[in-house]
């Protein structure tokens, strides 16, 4: 991991500076820069240990290494995070917003998946 992703890691010696971003998808390379314009990256920030990374916003950067650093400068100026992910914007596949429910209909009404469905055991200890 980059020494600067996590402020809890002590200052490294110079030789340990990791100049490459840790794990940017290599297939994302074409997304990184098109022509001379810097590519768009999505930034995810973990606000403290034990929590998920949450989408914080986007930024432009020529490559993953700079995207991480820009994200650090831009999205953690007020201690918002202890870890950052950056992802090329076009590497994200998303569900179709026009599915109009079909995609998410199935879980509706399946209340037997939830503890609250089981009323007869209510009040029984440790259940």
């Amino acid at each position: 991991m980059s020494p600067h992703g996590n402020p809890e890691v002590p200052a490294s010696s110079a030789t340990e500076i990791n100049r490459e971003a840790p794990k940017a998808s290599p297939t994302a390379a074409p997304a990184e820069t098109s022509g001379n314009a810097w590519g768009l990256w999505e930034v995810f920030v973990r606000s403290s240990r034990g929590l998920s990374h949450v989408h914080a916003g986007s930024l432009h950067a020529p490559d993953a290494a700079m995207a991480l650093r820009n994200a650090r400068d831009l999205y953690t100026r007020r201690n918002e995070g202890v870890s950052i992910w950056v992802v090329p914007a076009d590497a994200i596949a998303s569900s179709d917003p026009d599915a109009k429910g079909a995609f998410f209909e199935s879980p509706q009404g399946k209340d037997y998946r939830h503890a609250t469905y089981y009323t007869k055991s209510e009040g029984v200890k440790h259940l």
Binding site: P26, E32, G35, N36, A37, W38, P62
Partner: peptide, 12 residues
């Protein structure tokens, strides 16, 4: 900006 883009391209 051009330099950083060119560098990224060469690297990839």
């Amino acid at each position: 900006r051009e330099a950083a883009a060119a560098y990224a391209h060469k690297k990839s």
